[in-house]
Design a protein around this nucleic acid. Structure first.
Length: 421
RNA sequence: GUGGGCGUAGCUCAGCUGGUAGAGCUCCUGGUUGUGGUCCAGGCGGUCGCCGGUUCGAAUCCGGUCGCUCACCCCA
């Protein structure tokens, strides 16, 4: 008899009530900020060819190695629920020949993404990100503008205790050279390292800078620094980005140990964190990816972008009281067994909406007292109780009542509301 | 994948030195209030996550299992 309850899968959630309202206001805020800077919204498919992420995000990353929801469709194609937004946007850029549009091509999105991870505070298997990507220019001003836009979004959303860290990874070549240098340093002193750091030397040596293991920290103090191994062009680019951020009044810390988990980053990388969050303190981050479009088969095209977690922004911002929904008119029925009165109520509520009012009627067979209470809970401004051809219209704020012909209700309420403005 | 905490009504929780379940809120009904907002009364609602064990008897003790959650890891 009692079938087993089906619950939302682990790491997923339903959005309703106040949460929905907060998300809607975040979306509005993001749209205003980004579109006023020339970003155009883009929506890409929820799933893509698996190859897109394997190649774009990088085969050695955790995301590709163990976090992708990959499925085979009926025709044997391998598809993957998008784990991130940059590769799909670049795919669309190439597919639609956007390199022929005037540069930079600026695109933004607000979509859900999927990663098979253990859920915890601020981390989900289906999560939402707002992101912005700008393609076709390597001008450092683009980097600074992009970062400043995210700073503005976080500020307007009231995210507390925000900190921005930035660094530069240099070109792909410089980065690879440095990586080998660092690996050499780690290998030469590997017995001093913690087990997990030692295990990651080949995979993710940069990660060693984050360790709080004592021996590891000692080793890292003498480790080569990425910023000391950039070419002159990269250094000049980075210096210009910083100088422009200074001009824009965006505060930041340079952090040479900043690590980003995706392979496609080059030159500028950055991350916003908030202490108001739990262990998952990153609210948003991104950087430059000058090789990604070419990697995906397009013309050599520089790019710069970021993504920020919707759930994390909301988690780190004080919840504001939402402005409650407006209800102009509630239609009650004195005698719910009176078919004629119910019909009249139905016709009236329809007419009210056609006249531009927000209106609801009793739909659950409540007693009259129950209906009034319900209308009050809905925040109705006026309640009309229908009976035969006459009805009683009550102003819920003042308590004043008047009896009038049923067909005159809508016009009467509309006039009253118009006059009240 | 590995740890810690927790699983009792829709929600927040009490009950846990073993005797087959309670409160508040919500919802519905009635009374009071000029037909709502106050107050009063009543009602709906739970096989105490699931399985097994100990016991005359378990929500309460033990084992297992599933789920939620936080953290590691990783990232947004």
């Amino acid at each position: 008899m009692s079938a087993e309850k089906i619950k939302a899968p682990r790491g997923t959630f339903d959005v309703l009530g106040e949460q929905e309202a907060r998300r809607a206001s975040l979306e509005t805020c993001a749209r205003e900020i980004l579109e006023s800077a020339g970003y155009e919204r883009i929506e890409t498919p929820a799933f893509e060819a698996t190859e897109l992420f394997a190649r774009g995000v990088g085969g050695s990353t955790d995301i590709v190695q163990k976090e992708m929801y990959t499925l085979t469709d009926g025709s044997g194609r391998s598809l993957t629920l998008r784990p991130e937004g940059t590769a799909p946007v670049c795919r669309a850029y190439v597919e639609h020949g956007m390199h022929k549009r005037p540069a930079p091509v600026k695109l933004w999105y607000l979509s859900s993404f999927f990663r098979y991870e253990r859920a915890q505070a601020g981390r989900y298997r289906q999560f939402w990100q707002v992101g912005a990507e700008a393609l076709g220019s390597d001008d450092p001003a683009l980097d600074a503008e992009s970062i400043a836009l995210l700073a503005e979004l976080l500020s307007q959303m009231g995210v507390s205790d925000v900190r921005l860290r930035i660094s530069s990874l240099g070109t792909r070549e410089a980065r690879l050279r440095y990586r080998e240098l660092l690996q050499g340093h780690l290998r030469s002193r590997q017995d001093e390292l913690s087990d997990d750091v030692r295990g990651r030397i080949e995979m993710n040596p940069l990660r060693a800078f984050d360790s709080d293991h004592e021996g590891t920290r000692t080793v890292m103090q003498s480790a080569p620094r990425l910023l000391d191994h950039l070419d002159r062009g990269d250094l000049e680019h980075f210096a210009e980005v910083r100088s422009l951020l200074d001009l824009a009044g965006v505060a930041y810390d340079v952090d040479a140990t900043l690590v980003r988990g995706l392979d496609y980053y080059t030159r500028t990388v950055f991350e916003f964190t908030s202490d108001a969050l739990g262990a998952q303190s990153g609210v948003g981050g991104g950087g430059r990816y000058d090789g990604l479009v070419a990697e995906l088969g397009g013309p050599a095209t520089p790019g710069m972008g970021w993504a920020a977690g919707i759930e994390r922004i909301l988690l780190a911002s004080e919840s504001r009281p939402e402005n409650e929904a407006r209800l102009d008119l509630f239609i009650a029925v004195g005698d719910t067994t009176d078919r004629a009165a119910r019909g009249l109520a139905f016709a009236t509520v329809t007419a009210a909406r056609a006249a531009g009012l927000t209106a609801q009627m009793e739909l659950a067979g409540r007693s009259l007292k129950g209906q009034l209470g319900y209308a009050n809970k809905l925040g109705a401004r006026y309640v009309a109780t229908m009976a035969a051809a006459e009805c009683v219209l009550k102003d819920m704020r003042s308590g004043a009542e008047q009896t009038l012909a049923s067909h005159a209700v809508v016009a009467s309420v509309r006039d009253a509301l118009g006059a009240g403005k």
